[in-house]
């Protein structure tokens, strides 16, 4: 009897160890894949980097040389535009949600914001095409910025709302008990308390939209020239990666990797420190 139960115990222990190993293998696979991806981007991307890469516009089909300055400038313009549009709207909507948590319309609004956030970004692209590119009869940096803002607004609204909810209720109550109006309470107490969090989520939002391609295909469209005009088509880093890797030229492939390296570095430089900070404040 005792021999039999110790055999059972051994079997259970062996099963337990096997389970741990089975869990560890996928983790190793996932770590390996990410390592492979980052390594490949770095090794292939570094080869493309030189002064021209950052300072010259792209050359026409098949001509060697040139750079991706037009896409770098375009990315900055389109992303800034989207941020300028999104931030005020997102703060106001998040305030609405935080000030009226019990209203039915606020609950509907939250469902809508979540739905917008889950919307495939290509849909935003063709809708903005219909709204802006068709009437203006031209692809434009402006349309690209608006399309990206549709991705950014729901993202910022949900994260900023959470920040407002985390501001201690006692702050608000203290201000209100002194007879301060609601709007002064928001401007003087809530917003300053939430400011670091708002900046943090804006940073994450910028990192997210900087890599978006699908909403820009039919709005910003891309352009080989260095341009800062909002009414004209403009290229961005993701657009140039997509355009270049589809081409048959090795030189362009290499530039696509260079652009990918630039984009990934930018995104990770923002997200990694912010994710580290987020975890610290939580724990």
């Amino acid at each position: 009897m005792s021999e039999e139960s110790s055999g059972l115990l051994r079997r259970r222990r062996r099963k337990n160890s096997l389970f741990t190993v089975l869990l560890a293998i996928p983790v190793i696979i996932v770590v390996f894949i990410l390592g492979h991806m980052l390594g490949k981007i770095f090794i292939n991307g570094v080869k493309a980097l030189n002064l021209d890469f950052f300072t010259k516009a792209q050359k026409p089909f098949g001509e060697p040389g040139g750079g991706i300055a037009n896409a770098i400038i375009g990315s900055v313009i389109v992303v800034l535009l989207a941020t300028v549009i999104s931030l005020p709207i997102a703060v106001l909507v998040a305030l609405y949600l935080a000030e009226n948590p019990e209203k039915r319309i606020a609950k509907t609004l939250l469902v809508v914001v979540n739905a917008l956030q889950g919307l495939p970004s290509i849909i935003i692209g063709i809708v903005i095409y219909s709204w802006m590119v068709v009437p203006m009869k031209s692809f434009s940096a402006l349309a690209g910025g608006v399309a990206l803002s549709f991705i950014m607004i729901p993202l910022l609204t949900t994260t900023i709302r959470e920040i407002f909810v985390l501001v201690p209720g006692s702050y608000r109550e203290a201000a209100l008990s002194l007879g301060v109006p609601r709007w002064r309470t928001t401007v003087g107490v809530i917003l300053p308390a939430a400011l670091p969090g708002i900046l943090n989520s804006t940073g994450l939002g910028i990192a997210r939209i900087a890599g978006e391609t699908a909403p820009l295909l039919f709005t910003a469209f891309g352009s080989p020239y260095i341009s800062t005009a909002l009414g004209k088509p403009i290229s961005t880093l993701p657009l140039i990666i997509y355009e270049y890797i589809k081409s048959p030229y090795d030189d362009w492939h290499q530039k696509a990797w260079g652009a990918a390296l630039l984009l990934v570095c930018f995104v990770l430089l923002i997200t990694v420190p912010m994710n580290l900070r987020k975890d610290r404040s939580k724990g």
Partner: peptide
């Protein structure tokens, strides 16, 4: 968790590039 966030923040077009 930082690592998993990294995986989430790589743009789709870069996944495409790596996949190709």
């Amino acid at each position: 968790s930082v690592f998993i966030n990294l995986l989430a923040s790589i743009p789709s077009v870069v996944y495409g590039l790596w996949g190709m």
